[in-house]
Nucleic acid binder design. Structure first.
Lengths: 354, 354
DNA sequence: CTGAAAGCGCTTACAG
DNA sequence: CTGAAAGCGCTTACAG
């Protein structure tokens, strides 16, 4: 991005110009004030802090607002007050249920306060993350909620220059400058391996997709726990950068079993992959868990209901969103919380598939 | 909402006041112009329409932008130009894969043009829809993408007053004033019934949740097709307003079979419900489709892979989002498309479950 | 291709 | 509790 052409594109279709519709002006606060018979100032205060205005005038203003169907101009407000009610939220996916739960938590924590959420889907691309952040930074948000700890240099630079509170979600930062709310992906990966080992499985395979930062950490946890048991074998890993889907899980289990037919268990880096793996095994007459144990990660709603039900790691993603938003609120208010990195943990859910 | 207190809440924590940080001013276009040794005007044009500026000056401005890490102030731009690059998008759910696909289509259609998407999740609540629209209208978006045709009176009023192009998604409008891109939910519901009838099923049950406008239309299609065949029996319907989940599907199939144990097929108003119904039947030893046929609606990714695979109606939701965005672009450009209501159809996908 | 002036619709201090 | 003035950071015509 060295070319300013694309930095702040203004390639919109020619809009209606002001001069072409001199009559159809929007109704402004001045119109409201005029109609209510009060000054602009009083009208402004009646809306932004009603307690500063006498009951009588407030009612007049409210009536005028209703009669004129007045809509405040957020741009003018933001410009004059030098602050905004916007919060930028960047997640890597909308189709991954993990992040829709995170968003729900954020919405519940922030919605009641009247914040405008600027939600962006980065599609697991640091370039799209950069583009979206650049775009939303133009709205001068009061705070930023990011997914993961590692951003590209341009993003880190923008964040630093902006000087706006930031909280990272779904992972735990060890950098005191970056606040975070999440869980140890590494520990969670290792925990699943220990469960499989405790069940007696010894030839444990691994299926992973997307290979984002958090998946890599789970992978490291998987490897460390197996190495610790002296059972790590790279032939049992199938890892591809493609987006996780049920279909991909079906394909990857096929590849794994072709490479290492003697696997007695498979840890899938997320539930979608595990669903595909299980369905594919069923098609091939491989009984789960008798012939092969399969486990997932995240505990999506289907996991408890499918047959066999899926052993998995439950991640507190709704709470991650909720608590990250709460932490961000504190930071935006200028507080300095003792804990800027909140570990919400995870839980192993043992079901029929292992 | 008769109280202005809550109309435009300003309940934010006390922000840093301008006077408290006189030095740490944001860098403005004037700073950029100064550094580049050009006038404010030239700097402005270099960013918004580089062709209007000589190569030499443009490069200077670009350098200054980079050196100062300048971020344009969207509020100032919006205020001065009386238009915004924002588009408000309201969907009823993030957890329903249908709408994340719709959002992906919108993102692909609009992203390249540099629009800022103001995405809101109404949670199937017309009150939340109203609140979100009121909020986003303050940003004076250039266009609005809505889910469904029916909004509450306040929303319709706001839409009318705003005079901004609007496109409804996922359904088809018969009101020429409301543009729409979607499919006939009624026809799709009826199509599934005809399929089941053609397979020889005669005692067809129905499971529905959420009961939003589109579900109701599918229900009407279901009923009409059965009445036409002389086979409609209200005892075979189980409908609840709760959100659709796999767990709910498992519960509702239990209720249906308790009420009407002789059903030979069940049409679920969406795939999630169907998954739950199938898993529950498997637990009870009910063979599908031998003992009971089950079908869904939407064709989510799992439907093709589960065992048995699910007969369902595929809806073109990605394309709905994409085409709705395209139509909106035309409307925003002031064009008057011949077709303001685009039927993208649906397709019956017959699989193992029926 | 470049520039000086006016103004977008609000809020912020500062007075009263 | 209420008000007149200034200004937020840009873009829009209008000139040259």
């Amino acid at each position: 991005m060295s070319d300013t052409d694309s930095l702040f594109p203004e390639t919109l279709p020619p809009a209606r110009r002001r001069s072409r519709r001199p009559a159809a002006q929007r109704t402004t606060l001045a119109d409201v004030a005029h109609r209510a018979g009060v000054s602009l100032m009083t009208a402004s205060r009646a809306l932004s802090d009603p307690r500063q205005v006498s009951e009588k005038l407030r009612v007049k203003v409210e009536q005028a607002v209703a009669e004129l169907a007045y809509v405040p101009n957020r741009a003018a407000r933001a410009l004059a007050s030098a602050r905004s009610h916007a919060i930028a939220v960047l997640v890597p996916s909308f189709s991954n249920a993990v992040f829709t739960d995170v968003l729900a938590g954020i919405q519940d924590a922030l919605g009641p306060d009247g914040y405008q959420l600027l939600i962006g889907n980065t599609r697991y691309s640091s370039e799209e993350e950069e583009t979206l952040l650049r775009l939303h930074l133009q709205s001068h948000p009061a705070g930023i909620l990011l997914t993961g700890l590692t951003q590209n240099d341009a993003v880190n630079k923008m964040l630093e220059v902006a000087g706006i509170p930031v909280v990272s979600m779904m992972d735990l930062s060890d950098d005191p400058r970056r606040a975070s709310v999440g869980l140890s992906q590494y520990d969670a990966g290792a925990a699943m391996v220990r469960h499989l080992l405790s069940r007696g499985y010894r030839r444990i395979g691994y299926l992973a997709a997307q290979l984002d930062e958090r998946t890599i950490k789970r992978t490291e946890g998987f490897r460390a726990a197996l190495r610790e048991a002296g059972l790590y074998d790279p032939r049992r890993e199938v890892m591809v950068p493609d987006p996780s889907t049920v279909a991909l899980g079906a394909e990857l289990i096929g590849r794994l079993l072709a490479n290492a037919p003697d696997c007695d268990a498979v840890f899938c880096c997320n539930d979608d992959l595990a669903y595909g793996a299980i369905y594919q095994c069923q098609r091939r007459g491989i009984a789960i868990p008798r012939d092969l144990a399969i486990s997932g990660f995240n505990d999506l709603p289907t996991s408890a209901w499918m047959n066999p039900s899926l052993t998995t790691i439950a991640t507190p993603r709704y709470r991650v969103g909720y608590e990250a938003a709460q932490l961000l609120k504190r930071l935006m208010a200028g507080e300095e919380p003792q804990t800027r990195n909140i570990d919400l943990g995870f839980s192993l859910i043992v079901r029929e598939s292992t």
